[in-house]
């Protein structure tokens, strides 16, 4: 379950930000995840809630915005929603983006 290593990297950064801002509690976490990243959002949430127990991030809500990759035929310019390597016109399809995992914003409670 590689979601655990993602959750760990995420928690580390959240705890660093919480400490830097003297937060009492982390309320909400906003993520941006590329649609081509092989990650199961439910597993990620589950792992995060398990490893954040006992920290200021315990019980924080996770909101995920999914980002679409750009899939375009390099010959005719046709756009696709799904991963494909060759267009019907015979052109090679280029795929850009869709692989990011960004921590966008953190909402926390401070004194």
């Amino acid at each position: 379950m590689h979601e655990l290593s993602y959750a760990q990297a995420l928690l580390e950064e959240i705890l660093r930000l919480a400490e830097e801002n003297n937060a009492k509690r982390v309320v909400k976490i906003h993520l941006r995840i590329g649609e081509l990243l092989l990650i199961n959002p439910e597993q990620l949430k589950f792992c995060f809630s398990a490893i954040s127990r006992g920290t200021v991030a315990e019980g924080a809500e996770i909101e995920i915005e999914f980002i679409k990759p750009e899939i375009v035929c390099t010959k005719c310019g046709r756009r696709f929603d799904e991963v494909i390597g060759i267009c019907d016109c015979g052109g090679i399809v280029s795929i850009n983006g869709g692989k990011d995992f960004l921590l966008k914003k953190v909402e926390m409670e401070v004194e």
Binding site: Y6, N21, A23, K24, L102, V106, V110
Partner: peptide, 12 residues
Amino acid sequence: MHRIEIEAEHDV
């Protein structure tokens, strides 16, 4: 107690 929003823009 009040709520703040931190723009993190951190690559996980």
